[in-house]
Design a protein around this nucleic acid. Structure first.
Length: 103
DNA sequence: CGTGTGACACGTA
DNA sequence: TTACGTGCCACAC
């Protein structure tokens, strides 16, 4: 277990709350948290994303992390996430984020 | 406490 | 569509 920063714990909390077939952009996660920015969220998932559905967090234009694109695409197909070619259809797959407050 | 870095966002060409 | 520049935030050194 690596030492988790408060911000990192918060980010992971939100990512775990994302329901199947739904996604959030890095910026959306930061906005739901009300703190940090997309860069910070990406950094957290890169370091501590091993225990959460990291594939449900991707870039605002729907492109999954290039280094894990194949893995992410497999997950999207398995969950039935709306795809548009090799990118996620953010217009449909974007999560409301309403359940974050119900933790 | 300054500097570099990253699974980013966005405007412009 | 890709490429480049700028702004952004947290963290390791």
């Amino acid at each position: 277990m690596r030492p988790l920063t408060p911000f990192a714990a918060d980010v992971l909390d939100v990512v775990e709350a994302i329901p199947p077939a739904r996604v959030l952009s890095y910026g959306d996660v930061a906005e739901l948290l009300g703190a940090g920015g997309p860069r910070a969220v990406g950094a957290v998932l890169s370091r501590y994303g091993g225990g959460v559905p990291w594939w449900r967090v991707l870039r605002a234009d729907g492109t999954p992390p290039p280094q894990h694109a194949a893995e992410a695409l497999a997950r999207y197909r398995a969950e039935g996430t709306p795809l548009r070619g090799d990118r996620v259809d953010m217009a449909q797959a974007r999560w409301d984020g309403g359940a974050v407050g119900t933790l």
